[in-house]
């Protein structure tokens, strides 16, 4: 087998599995904050994502025939990952996901219990409480959490199926502010490990993947770009580029030059 074919094979066989489901795309995208549902559908298609996060909210009873997300983002084509965005207590998160399971029939969920604005930082006490109840109740919990190695390990031991620390606060677009801690946390986690929150542009997503993350979850970076569909494409490529760079293994850093051209055979 030639070297180019071997490289192709490494790439084509590169999949990841969460809770028994296997995916090719390492980008999970949110479906919120778009201009309208049509743009949501187009951006998600451009991102190449196979999993999308969705929120659970009260139906607008005054307009029961309003178009719904499912009409633009087909649940048969994408894996819906219901979230608990906006839940500030464990009880609210558990109620929300029980409703989501009834609405969609899915056990795979994203748990987030948040502290107050302006940081919306993960409330780890609430997160532990909710994770315990949900796991007992048969849910497969992908969990948003602080970049705290002990908390992450504990969540994994409880049975969470993916650990998803923040790179920076939700919707901040500040990028991965904690690359060293993300790398150190990852060492001790065996389930899928994702950066969730903080990504602002394509290079941020690539950095998360170069660090060795299984995948990246983002929403605002695409939805709040001036041209969301272009940014969705950029993210798709950045995730792939970062993943390939990780698989390739980067060159060592050195403090000084090391010329690429031979220093012998020079003209005199």
């Amino acid at each position: 087998m030639d070297q180019a074919t071997k490289a192709e094979d490494i790439q084509s066989e590169d999949t990841w599995t969460v809770a028994g489901r296997t995916f090719r795309s390492r980008l999970i995208v949110g479906t919120g904050r778009y201009k309208d549902l049509e743009e949501t559908g187009a951006a998600i298609a451009a991102s190449g994502a196979e999993i999308v996060t969705v929120a659970v909210r009260r139906v607008n009873l005054s307009d029961p025939k309003a178009p719904m997300l499912q009409d633009y983002v087909d649940p048969k084509k994408y894996t819906y990952l219901p979230n608990t965005a906006g839940c500030f207590t464990a009880n609210d998160a558990v109620r929300t996901l029980r409703l989501a399971r009834e609405a969609g029939g899915w056990n795979l969920v994203k748990l987030e219990v948040l502290g107050p604005p302006p940081l919306l930082y993960p409330d780890m006490r609430g997160t532990f409480e909710a994770a315990e109840v949900l796991i007992k109740d048969g849910f497969e919990v992908m969990v948003y959490c602080a970049d705290d190695p002990l908390a992450a390990k504990r969540l994994e031991e409880m049975g969470c199926v993916a650990i998803m620390p923040l790179g920076a606060p939700i919707g901040s677009g500040l990028g991965v502010q904690n690359p060293a801690m993300i790398s150190m946390m990852m060492e001790h986690i065996t389930v899928p490990f994702l950066v969730d929150a903080g990504v602002g542009t394509a290079s941020d997503a690539a950095i998360a993947m170069e660090l060795g993350c299984t995948a990246v979850l983002l929403n605002s970076a695409i939805a709040h770009a001036k041209h969301p569909i272009l940014m969705a494409r950029a993210m798709k490529h950045a995730i792939e580029a970062g993943r390939l760079a990780y698989l390739a293994g980067r060159m060592p850093r050195r403090m000084g030059a090391d010329p690429s051209s031979p220093l012998t055979g020079l003209i005199r």
């Binding site: 996060t53 909210r57 009873l61 719904m68 997300l69 979230n83 965005a85 409703l99 989501a100 605002s220």
Partner: peptide, 9 residues
């Protein structure tokens, strides 16, 4: 409470 899925991150 009657809920459905909407866009969310």
């Amino acid at each position: 409470e009657i809920v459905h899925f909407i866009g969310g991150g």
